[in-house]
């Protein structure tokens, strides 16, 4: 205990030992490393998506659907063709909650307890907003459109489930559910963690501890969730 305190002020080489070469605490480093490995989990799902989607490249019987024919609804605007508008709204919500999160972190640096609390609250609202949007989006996807798809035996299939969907090949629906579902699960756990931290902030735990590093750590996680959404948005909706 003593040697680290006495020697941290000494000018030593970055990698010379006795201190962190990155000048960050082990907790934040752990969070970074965890996020790196989580990025690989998401990548494996996106790889599966890329593989399967490209395996439909020359399939003319059941081509991969174009997203603007699938995700073209907006709440309260029934029957209006608004491709991607709703997803863009979700993207903005998530980016905005990221901004409030980083503002909370910044307020934490200034030890401004009230501001941290306010921004954390806004972040949680943003997370819940995003989850509600996703719930609507899923409902829309599952119930499907009026037209549906004609099956071989003449019946019409509406919407989607894990075995089948009206939009295109089976894996299209499967991948939609698994990719956005896994992301949604991350958002959900992020919201839960944020709520815990928010309560701690209000309770003054970090005020007592002397620093708001915990807020930074969950902040990293929250931004990561945002980051993943950027790529889900790009690969699943745009391309």
């Amino acid at each position: 205990m003593s040697e680290t305190t006495t020697l941290t002020n000494v000018k030593t080489g970055t990698w010379g030992g006795g201190k962190s070469p990155f000048s960050i605490s082990y907790g934040k480093l752990m969070m970074w490393i965890f996020l790196l490995s989580d990025a690989f989990t998401f990548s494996s799902l996106l790889v599966a998506y890329g593989f399967i989607r490209h395996s439909y490249a020359s399939n003319l019987v059941t081509p991969w659907p174009s997203p603007d024919h699938v995700f073209n609804h907006f709440p309260f605007l029934h029957g209006v063709h608004l491709p991607l508008m709703f997803v863009s709204l979700m993207t903005f919500i998530l980016i905005f909650s990221s901004v409030t999160m980083v503002l909370a972190v910044e307020a934490g640096h200034r030890m401004a307890k009230k501001e941290v609390g306010m921004y954390m609250f806004l972040t949680i609202l943003g997370g819940i907003g995003f989850l509600s949007c996703q719930a609507w989006e899923w409902t829309q996807f599952i119930t499907g459109t009026h037209e549906g798809r004609m099956l071989a035996d003449g019946s019409i299939f509406h919407g989607a489930n894990l075995q089948m969907n009206q939009y295109g090949p089976t894996p299209f629906g499967d991948l939609f559910f698994i990719v956005t579902g896994f992301h949604g699960f991350h958002v959900l756990s992020g919201v839960v963690i944020n709520i815990i931290i928010y309560l701690n902030v209000l309770g003054g735990t970090y005020e007592k501890r002397g620093h708001y590093e915990m807020v930074e750590k969950v902040g990293l996680y929250w931004h990561f969730v945002d980051l993943v959404w950027v790529f889900v948005f790009t690969f699943y909706y745009l391309i």
Binding site: F22, I33, L36, V102, G219, D226, L227, F231
Partner: peptide
Amino acid sequence: AYFIVGIFMHMKFEKKWLPYL
């Protein structure tokens, strides 16, 4: 992604080894 990681996640202001890592 660059802006989110760099500014929001503070990577731009960390020591250079962390970004490499």
